[in-house]
């Protein structure tokens, strides 16, 4: 499946959405396989390492950590999966606006930083994928740069 065949008006939002859902997927479908795989593995590993460090109850808590949750939403598919796990494990703490005492505060803080940074990094990846997908923006020198090096 390649996205190159789609008109740019469809391609740009589609690439953005796919990159948001699964980090790096937009790059892979645009033909930048290595770049997409590197981003995918790094962002997914960072996010789930953060969840493993701080526990899903302590890190992905939209009512208690609102702003961090917004940052985590940058990597949409992972955050939604983690929130679904949180709801399955402990539905009352998922909707609580008080801190969840399942982990030491230090573990939870480190986990939140990992997941938040993963979300913000994916924001960069989404914007990069959208910039690469738009044919008229990738003209001239930029197009030559993009087609060189990374496959």
């Amino acid at each position: 499946m390649s996205l190159q065949a789609y008109p740019s008006i469809v391609q740009v939002p589609l690439v953005g959405f796919l990159s948001w859902l699964v980090p790096g997927l937009g790059h892979i479908l645009l033909g930048h396989r290595t770049r997409g795989l590197v981003c995918m593995v790094t962002i997914i590993a960072t996010f789930w390492c953060g969840v493993a460090i701080g526990s899903v109850q302590g890190t992905v808590a939209p009512h208690y950590r609102k702003l961090w949750f917004v940052a985590q939403l940058g990597t949409g598919g992972n955050t939604l999966a983690a929130y679904a796990l949180h709801l399955a494990v402990s539905p009352e703490s998922a909707k609580s606006s008080k801190p969840v005492l399942v982990s030491h505060w230090m573990s939870a803080e480190v986990g939140v930083h990992y997941t938040g940074v993963a979300g913000l990094l994916n924001l960069l990846v989404i914007l990069d994928a959208m910039a690469r997908s738009e044919p008229f923006k990738a003209g001239g020198r930029r197009r030559r740069q993009l087609s060189r090096g990374f496959p």
């Binding site: 701080g54 796990l85 030491h104 573990s107």
Partner: peptide
């Protein structure tokens, strides 16, 4: 699931 529901001691 327990890997992601039990926090590490740091």
């Amino acid at each position: 699931a327990s890997l992601f529901t039990t926090a590490m001691e740091l």
